[in-house]
C-alpha cells in the first residue's frame, strides 16, 4: 500500500485526514481509490495537481507506477517561467 499525504488545502475533502494508506499500482488507480473514499476528490486531484512519488515530482502522472510503501503527495499546480 502507498501512503498518500494531503496538503492542508486538500484536507477539507478528506474530513481533515492528513494521510491515508491506499492500494494502487499507478497514480490513476490511487486517485480512483481515493475518490471512492472521499467522493469528489478525484476531480480535484486530476484537474489541478502535480504528484510527488517518493520525492520525485511528476506532471501528467496518471499512469506513473507507484511502488509498494511509496510516499505520495498531491501538490498545488505551478507553472515555470
Amino acid at each position: 500500500m502507498a501512503r498518500v499525504h494531503f496538503s492542508a488545502g486538500l484536507r477539507e475533502l478528506t474530513g481533515g485526514q492528513a494521510e491515508v494508506d491506499v492500494e494502487g499500482s499507478t497514480v490513476r488507480r490511487i486517485v480512483a481509490e481515493l475518490d471512492e473514499m472521499f467522493p469528489g476528490i478525484g476531480e480535484r486531484l486530476s484537474e489541478a495537481s502535480s504528484v510527488a512519488i517518493d520525492g520525485e515530482i511528476f506532471t501528467d502522472a496518471e499512469l506513473e507506477p507507484v511502488e509498494e510503501n511509496a510516499e505520495v503527495h498531491f501538490l498545488d499546480i505551478f507553472q515555470g517561467g
Binding site: 496538503s7 510527488a52 517518493d54 520525492g55 520525485e56 510516499e71 503527495h73 501538490l75
Partner: peptide
C-alpha cells in the same frame, strides 16, 4: 542551522532528494 537537506520533509510535502 535550519537548511533543508536530503531527507528533509519539504514544507510543501515530499522529502527532498
Amino acid at each position: 542551522a535550519n537548511a533543508a537537506v536530503e531527507g528533509t520533509q519539504a514544507s510543501y510535502g515530499p522529502k527532498f532528494p
